[in-house]
Design a protein around this nucleic acid. Structure first.
Lengths: 404, 404
DNA sequence: TCATTAAGTCCAATGAGTGGACTAAACTTC
DNA sequence: GAAGTTTAGTCCACTCATTGGACTTAATGA
């Protein structure tokens, strides 16, 4: 029934406690050994030993005596090193490539953003461009004294962990072995390369560094061409049985609505996706072949909303209502405390969020104690890369010994 | 970010490995020490020591030499003891009270079922009746040589773990401190008394002993007056941020449908709940004051379905379509591999499941690799009590030292 | 200046798991 | 049927992370 696969031995115990100490340092820095002993429940002796190891790993460093005015001998405060350990996040997307290097404190130590339409280009070319960008960023980080320990790549599709492949129909990828290809092309890293769904990483990015901080569990909705969601529960990503959880795009919001490529009718994507909104706002969805930072049509939509265009406003309201129905389902099933709108919907949030909020509170109001709050993503188009880099940081925090 | 609260010391390590060994015995019984060493990754020495402890706790016993025809010295097979350790599951419900005692092997060692309409009776009376039943069952189990180590109570409502209270509007309960009240009224038990949502326990019951065996993650839908769901992911219950996950009843399946007590419109409950189906089938929902095992109206509905009544069939088909829309949402968001229909819907499954299945495969077919299979619950009205008792068993398996 | 308080280090002790040697109990082969 | 082979289970000296108390260090307060 309940399974624990691996046996615990002395080394396991040590690693766990090491992670425990490092985690408390991260949360309470600067902090003395004595206080760490209280926080962790370990003895001073053990804490001192662990701190020794962490210092040698260059994960922790002394932070200069901070006087606290106490009586006895003052403690020696410890902090996470602003040291060499860093993580890299990458993102491939319909209209840009992006990268971001984060140190252990979550400070951005390098970034890149390349507008690029990857929808109509061969997979190989796209990956080459991604690798070139990654190499450049890694090199720049190295010059600034940062060593990238691992890389996480955000892709707009479903990751099949078992097969090691990615399917991302929106950019024409089918069974692409991203992890293997990148691992071969990038400099070797102790933590290696991992691929993850863009919405999932966006959710983590906002959780750790953006609009999701403080909320234990929430739904991050990320809309571009398709609509996906990342589900964070109790600070952990919820992936589902096959890693395909959070595919909110094909939740049915109108059984008598238009039919969808998925085979069903009235999916959210058909109602609140970019194409649907543009169509309803009567904006031509031309993507002029080349690359634009914000696709032209999206920019035009925002312009019209700002100038109070009635048709655009109605289009966004309709999308909001559709989205609300899908979110009601998500809220009832998953019981989150916050909903974060990302991607396209972060841009539309000023006009869209009120409609969603009122629909949500109307529907769930009488049953559940608290209606989840709706927020726009705080990191804009960087949510996913930050989440990706943060995943590497989190990995180090959870298992400090991976840093060689 | 990632948190581990408790420090690991030698004792923790030992307890973990103890659980590991016990778990492998449960999964592979009968099994020898040598094979256990392989399975767990521990040494023969350690396994032998752990088995010694488990034997002393009366959780494990030798099972007589089973010849395997191998070459060397034959091993001494070990099995879970059919010994004294047992768990108790209780259920309170609109129309019955139920109890079930399970030994460590999941064998039913005692049960009770009392038809009783608890909707219109004071909370205190209902709890008294529950306690009387529980006491009787515990006593009978004791006479048969079984010691109840803990109790789990299934209630048709939301459990607020923080406040220790239960809200179950369907039976008129509001902020009832069930755990505290029962713990005071029942004989002391090492594992104590726990309350849990009925759908959640039903999900676990089916997972461990019924239709869910073998599937790692699934959605258990339990419908009576309201409709709730229990979500099992990777063999674990998914509770959500406030323990209110799986409230599928108020997922919107028809934005233009009838308005619901929750404040929204077109909730599944309005379309696929008992009342809706009876209304559509033109059956009077009289509940003749007294108590009936199957409420009269439900029995009548089944009779008509069996005789091929067209109106009843249409009613169930409509309910199935509504349910399908809600399940599409659940499947897309949670990515389960199986859907189990419980409660009322287990009875209706023969007529309802085909409609749900076809709608599900139509909708998700082209996107996700596999469409989840639909099954009817195998334990009928016992799902929840078995899950409740199983929770106690699982607790012992996960932490054998709780058995004093 | 001396007592007090608290931080950090040192060190012998504890105890769970390890690994190799040993014994036990079967089967195979001559 | 006796000797050799194979596998199961036990014994025992050893390792090593954590512990708890004694000790050292460094500040404050009288």
């Amino acid at each position: 029934m309940i399974t624990r696969e691996a046996p615990t031995h002395l080394g396991t115990m040590r690693d766990r406690n090491l992670a425990l100490v490092l985690g408390e340092i991260a949360r309470h820095q600067p902090v003395t050994r004595a206080r760490l002993a209280e926080l962790t429940g370990l003895t001073k002796t053990t804490v001192a030993a662990q701190v020794g190891v962490l210092t040698r790993l260059q994960l922790v460093e002394g932070a200069g005596p901070v006087r606290e005015g106490g009586r006895g001998r003052p403690g020696a405060p410890l902090s996470l090193a602003s040291g060499p350990v860093a993580g890299l996040g990458l993102e491939v997307n319909g209209h840009y490539l992006a990268a971001c290097v984060l140190d252990m404190n979550g400070v951005v130590r390098g970034r890149a953003h390349i507008a690029r339409n990857s929808r109509d280009r061969p997979v190989g070319e796209t990956l080459d461009a991604l690798v070139r960008m990654a190499r450049r960023v890694i090199e720049e980080a190295a010059e600034a004294g940062f060593t990238v320990m691992g890389t996480t790549v955000a892709v707009p599709g479903v990751v099949d962990r078992a097969a090691g492949t990615v399917n991302a129909p929106n950019i024409g990828w089918q069974a692409v072995t991203v992890e293997a290809l990148l691992a071969d092309s990038l400099p070797p890293q102790p933590i290696g390369v991992r691929v993850e769904n863009e919405a999932n990483l966006g959710a983590l990015g906002e959780l750790w560094y953006g609009a999701g901080r403080g909320s234990g569990s929430y739904v991050y909705v990320s809309g571009e061409a398709g609509i996906g969601a990342g589900l964070v529960v109790d600070g952990e990503l919820f992936r589902g049985a096959h890693g395909a959880a959070g595919e909110i795009g094909h939740v049915v919001v109108d059984p008598s609505g238009p039919s969808c490529a998925c085979g069903g009718r009235g999916c959210v994507e058909q109602v609140a996706g970019l194409d649907a909104v543009l169509r309803a706002a009567a904006i031509e969805s031309v993507d002029a072949g080349g690359a634009g930072h914000l696709p032209d049509a999206t920019a035009e939509l925002l312009r019209r909303l700002e100038t109070g265009d009635a048709l655009a406003a109605a289009a966004v309201e309709a999308a909001g209502s559709g989205m609300a129905v899908a979110l009601i389902a998500a809220v009832n099933l998953l019981d989150p405390d916050t909903v974060v709108l990302g991607g396209l919907h972060a841009l539309l949030a000023p006009w869209m969020a009120p409609h969603i909020e009122s629909a949500l509170s109307r529907s769930g109001g009488r049953l559940r104690g608290s209606v989840p709050t709706i927020r726009a993503a705080a990191l804009a188009s960087e949510s996913a890369v930050r989440g990706g880099a943060g995943t590497v940081v989190a990995r180090v925090l959870a298992d400090p010994m991976v840093v060689s």
